[in-house]
Amino acid sequence: MKRVLDRADERILTELARNARIPHAELAEVVNLSRNAVRQRIDRLERDGLIQGYTIIAGEGRPPTAAVTAMMFVYRHDRMRGGDVIHALKRLPEVVSCDVMSGEFDLVVRVEAGATDRIREIWQEISALPGVRDTLTAFALSSMIKR
């Protein structure tokens, strides 16, 4: 059974979204709870999947490493029973999104990697999956909107 978030959980999530490195003691003051209660709530939010990870945004003084982005259009042998392909994609950390599509192709997979060689390796892995009939890959030249 999924737990309903209360106001304190919502405030914790909001503050962590602003600054994931905020000390528990400081966060406790903001949300008006004890440091231990905040830690326990964060642990529970992580276990429940509401917090699925933390990220780093490179700041000034360090040039950001540009990720190579590719969109892979995947055609499966069986659209209705091709869940094994999606499960395999979930295990690839470079796959940042996968959408089931209507129309000609089945899946649109967004892949972000540090180098084109890694994109090629991922493409080979995806193409070799038993449920994959064919793929089409396009590299992003630039990103105009990223949220």
Rank of each mutant, 00 (worst) to 15 (best):
L50I: 14
R44N: 10
I57F: 10
M101E: 01
G59M: 06
M72A: 13
E46Y: 11
D48K: 09
M71I: 10
D99Q: 07
A70R: 09
S102A: 09
R47G: 01
N36A: 13
A67T: 07
K90I: 00
S97F: 05
T55R: 02
G59P: 01
S34Q: 10
R47S: 10
H77Y: 09
I57N: 13
M71K: 14
M72W: 13
A66N: 05
G103F: 02
A70M: 02
V96I: 09
G59N: 06
E60G: 15
N36W: 08
D99V: 05
D106M: 07
R39N: 15
A37S: 15
G59F: 04
I57C: 10
V108S: 05
D99K: 08
A88F: 08
R47L: 03
L107K: 02
I57W: 10
V96N: 14
R91V: 00
R39K: 14
P63R: 07
L45S: 11
I56H: 15
M72E: 10
I51S: 03
P64S: 06
D106P: 05
D43G: 07
V95C: 00
I86C: 04
L92A: 07
R76C: 13
P64K: 10
T69N: 05
H87M: 03
I56C: 14
K90S: 06
V85K: 01
G103I: 05
L50A: 07
E94M: 02
T69D: 06
R76K: 11
R76N: 05
R76I: 13
T55Y: 12
A88M: 07
G83S: 06
I86S: 07
L107W: 00
L45P: 11
V95M: 04
P93A: 01
D99M: 03
R81A: 12
G53Y: 04
L92T: 08
R81Y: 10
A66K: 00
A70Y: 03
Q40I: 11
G53Q: 00
R39S: 14
V108T: 01
G83M: 08
R44V: 06
R76H: 08
A70H: 10
M71P: 03
E46M: 09
D78N: 13
T69V: 04
M72K: 05
V109Y: 05
T55W: 09
C98V: 09
G49M: 03
L107A: 00
V100A: 06
Y75K: 15
Y75I: 11
M101F: 02
S102C: 03
E60W: 15
G82Y: 06
N36L: 03
D43Q: 09
Q40P: 10
G103C: 04
R35I: 04
K90F: 00
R76W: 08
Y54D: 07
V68N: 02
V109N: 07
P64D: 04
R91D: 03
V96F: 08
M72V: 01
L92I: 10
R62Y: 09
R79S: 14
C98P: 01
V108M: 00
D43F: 15
V38I: 13
T65M: 13
E104V: 04
D84N: 09
D106H: 06
V95E: 00
V68W: 02
Q52N: 15
R91K: 12
A88G: 09
F73C: 02
